[in-house]
Structure formats: C-alpha cells, structure tokens
Write a protein that binds this DNA or RNA. Sequence first.
DNA 1: GTCAAGATTAGT
DNA 2: CTAATCTTGACG
Length: 201
Amino acid sequence: MKRLQRDFYARPTMEVARDLLGRLLVRVYDGQRLSGRIVETEAYLGANDPASHAYRGPTDRNRVMFGPPGYAYVYFIYGMHHCLNIVTESDGVAGAVLIRAIEPVEGVEVMQKLRGGRPIAELTNGPAKLAQALGLDISWNGTDLCTSDDLFLEEGEPVPDESVMTAPRIGLSSGATKDAPWRFVIKGNPFVSHPPWKRKS
DNA sequence: GTCAAGATTAGT
DNA sequence: CTAATCTTGACG
C-alpha cells in the first residue's frame, strides 16, 4: 500500500489530525509488520495552545515539534509511559498530532506479547498502550516517517465526515484551550479510548 | 540545585 | 479515586 508523503504532513495541524483517521500506522518489528488503523487523534499547536508542550518555545524535549513535518515526536511521561506524535506544519512552525488509539490489524500476537498478554480490546486503546504494543520508546523520537523502513504510515482507508466525531482533548487540567474540540475519533469504533459517545467525558 | 507537575494506566 | 515512577522545565 502507498506510503503517506511529506506533503500530507505539511499542512495545518487540525487538518492533518482529522485526515489521519483511517490511515495505517506501520511498525516493522523484528522483520515483522505490526500495524493498526488510526481511530483517535489529538491536535497540539504551538504558541496559541497552552496545553501543548511547544507552548513556551523550543526545548531539548520538544525540539522536533518545531522541525520539518513528517517526523515522529515521542516523549516519556509519568515516569513510565511513552506517547507517539506526528509532526505537522512547515519547518520552523510548531505542531503535532498525538496518536491516541489504533485498531490492531497486523502482528496482533507480537503486540499482545509486548503488552504482557493483555486482551486485544486493551492492546492499543490509549497513547501509551499503542506505543508499548509497537515497541516504541524515546529512541524513536526524531524518526523520519517518510524515509524510515521501520516506522511509517500508509494511506489506508480515508474516513467520511459522517463517521468522524470531535471532542475535547483528554488529560488536560488547565489552560484556555483545554476544552477546545481538538480530539478526533471514528464514531463507534471499539478501540477509541474514553468514548465521547458514551457520555460522561 | 531544587522541586512540583505531568498529552497515562492499572488496580482498588 | 489513587499509586506508580522519573524526566523535564521553571525558578532562584
């Protein structure tokens, strides 16, 4: 299947976050394809988004968010979790999309092994969960998804507007943009974390 | 140098 | 609801 090119990522973050739904996230682990269909994303901007790591300008940790689009921004959080983001916007402009959940497609057994034998339903329905299921850690920060042989995205099956639902982002405690509807999910998909349609955000 | 908070998860 | 667990970044 065709791989997504640089121009796909070189657009406004919100647009990319929406368009990422339905795409196939692929990780080649030990020569084997592990993949999943993206079912949940969140957009994080720069200067105008207090909830973003890039809000206060570039630092050692968030630097890749300010670089060219199409790169992976992976960070370590809460002393035990890793999360995967896709860098957007043009070089010099901060922006990234957090991949919050994917629906397992290939390499389910390997992903299960990496996740301590958890059931398929709990394999990749959360940012830190999918990172663990795909064997991603901080060493993947800065990987170019347009040229890497081990981590990239394929076109997959674009999702129609009627299947997309927006909601406030998860886990934010403060900031003017904490309630902005910058979270995108495929309505009704069982692998979405904190399902918006089940009320009780 | 010090220190509180964090784009989460699993278990009570 | 809370513990787990440790890096980062703000401040002095």
